[in-house]
């Protein structure tokens, strides 16, 4: 049942460039995919290990700025720049994680929020490097690989789709492995995990680094796809927005980040002109979900299918 849905979703995703009439819509979908990759990253740390990293968008920014700067200032091609961007995000993630993970609960959220905002302040103020509020423009598209060129909307769409597919595959493989089950076990009962000989600090750091890797990947794809970049993509409000997508899609689930992002981005564009009013609905929705339906759309769906299977 679920496998069939995934196959249908993949088929639709591949067919979309032939289905939608305007590149405008293609860009919206690709943008949603990029956000979804970042939301998958947030899901690894919040959904699996139960820790809320409010600096998540800053790691997205690290990946994005690294790719943009390496391409425009150092003349690197996209592919090594993307690798370096992910690496930069993970290395910073390891540094921030090894300090912030010593704090607990509310302190962790406050600490990471502060780190995130500091990084965003640097993006805004280090004008010689980052271009300040204007940001970086004219980021070149990826060079061709043999006959494959990446300088149009459609090829870029497939590139982003590929990154999203890779992200979902990573999350799936990790979640069901011993490593992923250890993530959720620690969130469930930290003391028992310690008593079972699990080095909780190390496992949490692993999750944090994986999470920041995905944020960096999303950032790199953003810089590539849009060709320009500014500090407004890295602030606390962006993390909050990703959090909204995750909670509505379903915290801790495999489909949740994608479903939540697509549904909300879709609704926002459906309500043309309502764009700025959408949070009048989504804000209270978030409050209601967290109280009555903490597993979101995907969690509710798997509960339903489990009920069908039980019949």
């Amino acid at each position: 049942m679920r496998r069939v849905l995934w196959i249908i979703a993949a088929a639709v995703a591949v067919a979309i460039p032939f289905l939608v009439p305007k590149t405008f819509y293609l860009q919206i979908v690709a943008g949603a995919y990029i956000t979804a990759i970042a939301v998958y990253g947030l899901n690894v740390i919040l959904g699996y290990t139960g820790l809320l990293n409010l600096g998540h968008a800053a790691f997205f920014g690290i990946g994005a700025y690294a790719v943009a700067l390496l391409e425009t200032k150092a003349g690197w091609p996209f592919w090594p720049a993307l690798l370096a961007g992910c690496a930069a995000s993970v290395v910073l993630g390891a540094m921030v994680g090894s300090v912030s993970l010593r704090t607990r609960g509310n302190y962790f959220a406050i600490f990471t929020a502060a780190v995130g905002v500091m990084i965003a302040i640097v993006f805004t103020n280090w004008q010689e490097l980052t271009g300040g509020n204007i940001g970086i423009v004219n980021i070149p598209p990826p060079p061709s690989i043999g006959p494959l060129a990446f300088d149009g909307d459609v090829p870029k769409y497939y590139l982003v789709l590929g990154a999203l597919a890779l992200t979902i595959l990573i999350c799936r493989l990790v979640r069901h492995s011993l490593v992923g089950r250890t993530f959720v076990a620690i969130a469930d009962n930290e003391d028992l995990a310690r008593a079972a000989g699990i080095d909780v600090a190390r496992v949490r750091l692993t999750a944090f680094m994986l999470s920041t890797f995905l944020a960096g990947l999303a950032g790199g794809m953003f810089a590539m796809y849009n060709g320009n970049l500014g500090p407004d993509q890295t602030g606390l409000d962006i993390t909050f927005e990703q959090l909204l997508y995750l909670v509505i899609g379903g915290i801790g689930t495999i489909a949740g980040p994608l479903v939540g992002t697509l549904v909300l981005v879709g609704i926002s564009h459906e309500l043309q002109g309502m764009q700025q009013y959408r949070f009048l609905i989504f804000g209270p929705l978030l409050v209601l979900l967290v109280r009555f339906f903490p597993l979101g759309i995907a969690g509710g769906f798997s509960r339903l299918t489990a009920r069908w299977a039980a019949r």
Binding site: I170, L173, S177, V179, A196
Partner: peptide
């Protein structure tokens, strides 16, 4: 039993 297994993220991936 987890501590007896050395599987890391890369093994999993």
């Amino acid at each position: 039993y987890r501590m007896h297994a050395a599987t890391n993220v890369f093994d999993a991936l």
